[in-house]
Computed example of a mutant assay.
Amino acid sequence: MLNKNEAIYIEELKKLIEKIEYGSITITIHNNEITQIDATEKKRFDKPKNNN
């Protein structure tokens, strides 16, 4: 059974995973506890083709 904090962490991670198309999620742990969750989203743009 998950404690209250663990349930919050899992819910937050699920939201981030569903939102990010390209990127990364970093979990920071201190003294066996999650202290921070960082999400970095990347935007990709196709290079325009040169039609000359």
Rank of each mutant, 00 (worst) to 15 (best):
N52Y: 08
L13C: 00
I34P: 03
I27R: 02
K47P: 10
Y22H: 15
T40D: 13
I29N: 03
E33F: 04
L13Y: 02
N50H: 14
D38A: 07
H30R: 05
D38C: 07
Y22I: 13
M1I: 02
G23L: 04
G23N: 06
N31P: 11
Q36Y: 07
E12T: 01
N32D: 15
N52F: 01
I20C: 04
K42P: 11
M1E: 09
A7V: 07
I8N: 13
E41M: 07
L2M: 05
E18A: 05
A7Q: 15
I10L: 05
D38H: 14
Q36W: 09
G23T: 06
E18D: 14
K49G: 06
T28G: 03
L16A: 05
A7M: 10
R44W: 09
I37F: 03
Q36V: 06
Y9G: 03
M1Q: 09
P48E: 13
N51A: 05
H30Q: 13
A7I: 04
E11K: 07
L2F: 04
K4V: 01
M1K: 05
I8F: 03
I8P: 10
N5M: 08
E18Y: 01
I10D: 15
I27G: 00
M1C: 01
K4D: 10
P48K: 13
Y22P: 11
E12Q: 08
L13R: 00
I27E: 02
I20V: 14
E41P: 11
I10T: 12
K15W: 00
R44S: 13
H30Y: 13
N51E: 14
